[in-house]
């Protein structure tokens, strides 16, 4: 593999890494506040993708022209972000909250149950086959020093990076962000108090919103969506969150980039069918040497489970 094609693959890897990072932040935020692996997150994202598909198909004449196309994509990303955020809040309110003081594995099973229900909804909504995502000047490429840059990938970056910057400002600069970061230290008892309840709701909304944006980015990047995409992307994003150290937001973003790069490079070198195996192998080997992930603290929240 020469340098140009290597850089080309890196570009693809970073693009997919950014939206995997967006999803991974969702896992990590929820884990940091309620100590639960939100298994249904991938399927929430998948439903966001379905909604975006519906919106973009409705606006079908617009995406042909670049400017209105971009606006349509931004509109779709906002709608699907709001939708996923609200869906996440509802899931927390009606499924997870009643189980705050149940044995630790019970919410996990509920999360798996929610994931099954959402996957089935997606199956009925868009059918069992791949659905093509509306094309937004997909075919346009620009060549910079032998590397061709797909305009669609730039669009993916353009809609994925601003939410991450907003999240950074929100977590670092506002009072809300400080309380959100401190909530990771709360015990189960205070998780039921009013203030903490609102914060947990906000966490679920933010993680859903980022997931919704990620679903549109993934749809543009992969050009198709299907009802199982949430499951597959969810596994990658969860890997990213764990690799970065689950509970740590910068860790999730770095983890997402690492997973995206690993996947793109292994697709290029070994072929697409080995991508998942090589990502997971790296994860297993890495965790054997650094059990707490890249940014994780050595003693994780949640203890045994």
């Amino acid at each position: 593999m020469d340098v140009a094609s290597f850089l080309q693959q890196c570009g693809i890897g970073i693009t997919s890494g950014v939206f995997l990072g967006l999803m991974a932040v969702g896992y990590t935020l929820v884990y940091g506040t309620v100590g639960l692996i939100h298994f249904a997150h991938g399927d929430v994202v998948m439903l966001g993708g379905c909604l975006a598909l519906a919106i973009l198909s409705f606006l079908v004449p617009l995406p042909v022209v670049p400017l209105t196309g971009c606006l349509a994509v931004i509109l779709a990303a906002m709608c699907s972000g709001l939708f996923c955020g609200c869906l996440n809040v509802c899931i927390d309110r009606f499924v997870y909250r009643p189980l705050r003081d149940a044995p630790p594995l019970s919410p996990l099973v509920s999360a798996i149950g929610v994931s099954f229900v959402l996957m089935n909804v997606g199956l009925v909504w868009i059918g069992p086959t791949d659905r093509a995502f509306p094309k937004i000047f997909l075919d346009t490429t620009h060549s910079v020093g032998g590397i061709s840059i797909l305009m669609a990938d730039l669009l993916v970056l353009a809609i994925s990076v601003p939410p991450l910057l907003c999240l950074y400002v929100l977590l670092r600069q506002t009072r809300f962000g400080r309380s959100l970061r401190s909530i990771a230290a709360i015990t189960r008892a205070t998780a039921r108090s009013g203030e903490a309840g609102k914060l947990i709701g906000a966490t679920f909304f933010i993680s859903g919103f980022l997931g919704g944006v990620a679903s549109v980015a993934a749809g543009i990047h992969a050009t198709t969506i299907n009802y199982q995409m949430g499951h597959q992307m969810g596994l990658y994003a969860l890997t990213a969150a764990v690799l970065g150290g689950i509970g740590s937001v910068p860790g999730a973003i770095v983890g997402g980039l690492v997973v995206g790069l690993l996947r793109a490079i292994s697709v290029a070198v070994l072929g697409p069918r080995w991508a998942m195996a090589s990502v997971f192998l790296v994860l297993i080997v890495f965790l054997a040497f650094r059990p707490q992930g890249i940014y994780g603290k050595s003693k994780t929240r949640g203890g045994q489970h």
Binding site: Y31, I37, L238, T239, V242, I246, L283, I284, L287, A288, P291, Q292, G293, T300, G302, G303, Q304, H305
Partner: peptide, 10 residues
Amino acid sequence: RLRGDYLAIV
């Protein structure tokens, strides 16, 4: 060597 959820992911 891994605790809890990390073991699950491995």
